[in-house]
């Protein structure tokens, strides 16, 4: 019999939780084995001491504390419930329709305003250039000039007029990197301010793009 088995048998014997053969085994063990007797006595004493531990008394205010916490929770539930019922009443009452219309109009105005602000904020940000779709200019012709080229919208739409093949036709044009142009455009938003740039070649994402900032007749 292992020590674990002995321990469990004696612990159960202590509680009277044994069948007849187990009882006989436990009793003979206790008669013959001093170690088992010591173990049993120790277990019995621990059990007795646990049973004799002074009774603990719940604090007198425990019930009140619980009631208080429950009342707070109930109040929260009631507030939301009341609000919910009120909203339902309003929604189902036709006399509230004009008020709803006004509210709806207000909401639309707020949305429009916030949309405008968001757009303004977006437009105020740095210009991001991307390689435009290439437009093939007729052979031998210089690129057309366009006032609109200076506007950021125009750049955004990718309606730039130069393709790589035209660059060699104007070898003396200044070349800017995309980052340099972006920096320039960020600081000069008006067409007049961009005019000194004249016509430049910009390298954006590996593509050469011509930009004409001189004032002229638009397309």
């Amino acid at each position: 019999m292992s020590s674990t088995d002995t321990l469990e048998l004696l612990s159960r014997f202590l509680d009277g939780d044994v069948d007849e053969p187990e009882r006989v085994r436990a009793e003979s063990l206790l008669q013959e084995d001093a170690e088992a007797r010591r173990l049993y006595e120790g277990l019995a004493r621990v059990r007795g001491r646990l049973a004799d531990l002074p009774e603990v008394t719940a604090p007198a205010h425990l019930g009140a504390l619980v009631q208080q916490r429950l009342a707070v929770e109930a109040d929260e539930v009631t507030v939301w419930g009341r609000l919910d019922r009120q909203l339902r009443r309003w929604l189902l009452d036709p006399s509230f329709l004009p008020a709803f219309a006004v509210l709806l109009a207000l909401a639309a105005m707020i949305y429009a305003l916030s949309f405008g602000i968001a757009r303004f904020e977006r437009d105020s940000g740095p210009v991001i250039l991307s390689a435009p779709e290439a437009v093939t200019a007729p052979e031998g012709r210089a690129p057309a000039r366009s006032r609109a080229l200076a506007s950021r919208e125009f750049v955004r739409r990718g309606e730039l007029w130069v393709e790589a093949g035209l660059v060699p036709a104007a070898p003396d044009l200044p070349v800017l990197s995309g980052a340099e142009l972006e920096e320039w455009l960020t600081g000069h938003r008006e067409l007049a301010a961009l005019e000194p740039l004249g016509v430049v070649i910009v390298e954006v994402e590996g593509a050469a793009i011509g930009l004409d900032f001189t004032a002229g007749e638009g397309d």
């Binding site: 321990l7 004696l10 612990s11 173990l39 120790g42 277990l43 004493r45 621990v46």
Partner: peptide, 10 residues
Amino acid sequence: RIARGRDRLR
């Protein structure tokens, strides 16, 4: 669990 708990307490 009871047996092992009691034994540890002992």
